[in-house]
Structures are given as C-alpha cells and as structure tokens.
C-alpha cells in the first residue's frame, strides 16, 4: 500500500471502536474482488479503467469507496453489480464467482431509476414478482419495506409525485425487498440537496442497523464516507491496487455531532491527503484584466 509522505498515521481507534473493528474482522467474507481489471476497447485505442484491484468485504460491513473523479469508482460498482464484465480477475460472492446481474446484489443508482409507470408499491413489489413470489405475499412484504423507509402513506403514489429524497428511499426499499446479500450504492445521494442528503444518511444508517445487509457505497464526499462507513477504501487516481484502507475510528450509532469530533476531523484530514495529494495548494493568482476601473477599485479594496 503506497502512502503519500505527508500523511499522518491512521488515527488510533478508542478501545470500544477497536473491539467493534476486531469483531468485524472476524466475520466471514461476503464479497471478494480478485485482481480485477477493466479495459475499454475504443476505436482510438484502449483505455484502462481498473487494474490489479483486490478487496474483501465482510458480512454486515459498511464500506465506502472514494477516489478522485475518473478513478473508476463507478466502473467498479457496475462490475460488482454485473452490469459490466471485467476483462480480468473475478468477483466472488460467498466464494462463488458471479457473472451478470442478479437480485443477490441489489443496486441503488444516483438517478433513482424508479419505474415511472408503477406506484411506489409496484416498484417495491417488482423484484419479488420477478422472483415469482405469490402476489399477496409479495404485496405484504413490499409494504413492510415501504414502512421501513417511512413511506407507508405514499404506497399508491407514482414516482413523479415524490421528492428526490423520497424517490431514493423507494429505490432503497426496492433493492432491499429482494433480500440481497450485498447492497451496492452508486453515489445515491449525489443528486440531493445537502439537507436532504444529511437526512438520508441518517435514514440509511438506521435501516442498516435493522436489516441484515452488507453495503458498498460509492461517494466523492469525504464527510459522507467517514460518517457512514466502517472502512473507507481509497482508489488510486490511476488504475492500480487499492491505495489505502482506513478503519473509521468512530463509535456507532453515528450522530451528527461526530462531524465536529476531533477524531472525525483527524480522519478527514488523513483521507484528504490521499485525495488531494500532489494537487497545487492554492489557485494561481489571476491578474484582473479588462475590468472597468471602478470595479477594480472595489475588488482591490
């Protein structure tokens, strides 16, 4: 694992946190990524998106994957979901190689992707219907998931009648209704405003406490990653093995106050060094040309 020279060592976890992390490490591996490679062949040569990627995700872990834009985060999660085939390496779920998409790997997309012609209930029932569940049983199950995400009163609404946050809750309920072994989330809150995003993070953690599920969560927001995750995985800016894995030294359940905790801030600074490594510190000074004199006076003042 390479490490930038100015990065401080991993922040030390408290005893309580250390015990929880140790318990996590003792759990069985659910998802195993083995020397994954993805190369896109285009008309103007090939483009390497991922190379030599290894990662193990343990049962009931919450993993956040971060990295600079264009580092292949989305490609990674799409390959895990089976929406794209890797050009090398393999994905093991419970020790068995997987090919193509399947309901045991649920996915929540940034763009909601709810079926507009189905009601909230219809959307959540969808996966159960595909699996051939009996209709009444499926509707009953679906309502439980809808209640879990707090949308019991909206079961008969169409997606177009819901706000962005509500749509994403439906998408989460829809993915969970198929009882996936692992829940894949591709920047699910990226399109939401910051207040809604904060609320959604709380919802998600609450849901994960009550549901037996393992989560791989892609984000570019460091605060979000630290706030949600047990472990934060940093992908390298150029294709290569995982650059860094950080155990988040915060206790659970997470609370908003943790964002101001010195531990949190240290963890954030620690990750910052990876993400913003060898980027210029300050923007170069741009001379103010072509502005009217009055404006320049104001600016200089």
């Amino acid at each position: 694992m390479s490490r930038p020279p100015d990065a401080s060592p991993d922040p030390p976890p408290s005893r309580e946190v250390g015990e929880r992390l140790a318990r996590n490490r003792a759990r069985p591996v659910v998802l195993s990524i083995r020397s994954l490679e993805k190369r896109y062949e285009g008309s103007d040569g090939s483009f390497l998106a991922l190379r030599g990627l290894h990662l193990d995700v343990r049962h009931r872990e919450f993993i956040c994957v971060i990295g600079r834009s264009g580092c292949g985060k989305s490609t990674l999660i799409r390959i895990i979901a089976g929406l794209e085939e890797p050009t090398g390496g393999e994905i093991l779920l419970d020790g068995k190689a997987v090919h193509g998409p399947g309901p045991e790997r649920g996915m929540v997309f940034q763009a909601y992707t709810l079926f507009p012609w189905l009601t909230v209930r219809g959307n959540v029932v969808f996966g159960l219907k595909m699996a051939g569940a009996e209709r009444e049983r499926a509707e009953y199950e679906a309502m439980r998931w809808i209640d879990l995400v707090g949308l019991g009163g909206f079961a008969n609404h169409y997606p177009d009648q819901l706000s962005g946050g509500m749509k994403q809750r439906v998408a989460i309920a829809r993915a969970l209704a198929s009882r996936p072994r692992i829940l894949l989330m591709d920047e699910p809150f990226g399109a939401l405003d910051s207040q809604t995003r904060t609320r959604m993070q709380g919802y998600l953690l609450k849901i994960c406490r009550r549901v037996d599920v393992t989560v791989v969560f892609i984000t570019h927001d460091l605060d979000e990653a630290i706030f949600l995750a047990d472990r934060v995985v940093v992908l390298p800016p150029r294709p290569g093995p995982v650059q860094h894995v950080m155990d988040v030294p915060l206790p659970r359940p997470r609370r908003r106050e943790h964002l101001l905790d010195p531990t949190f801030i240290r963890a954030r600074r620690h990750l910052d060094a990876f993400i913003h490594e060898d980027e210029p510190d300050d923007e170069p000074e741009v001379p103010v040309h072509g502005l009217a004199d009055e404006v320049r006076d104001v600016l200089e003042f």
């Binding site: 979901a81 089976g82 649920g106």
Partner: peptide, 25 residues
C-alpha cells in the same frame, strides 16, 4: 437504459425485461 439495468439488478430475466420493463416503458 438505466431502467433496464435496474430491472436486471432486481433479477429480471430477458423475457421479463421485455414484458415488464420495455413494453410498459
């Protein structure tokens, strides 16, 4: 196309994709 992908991650087979996503969509 993302609707098709979503349906696939929910376990829809090829026939189900046509019947339950493409046609109503």
């Amino acid at each position: 196309r993302s609707l098709l992908e979503a349906a696939q991650t929910l376990g829809a087979s090829r026939r189900q994709l046509v019947r339950h996503v493409i046609v109503p969509g």
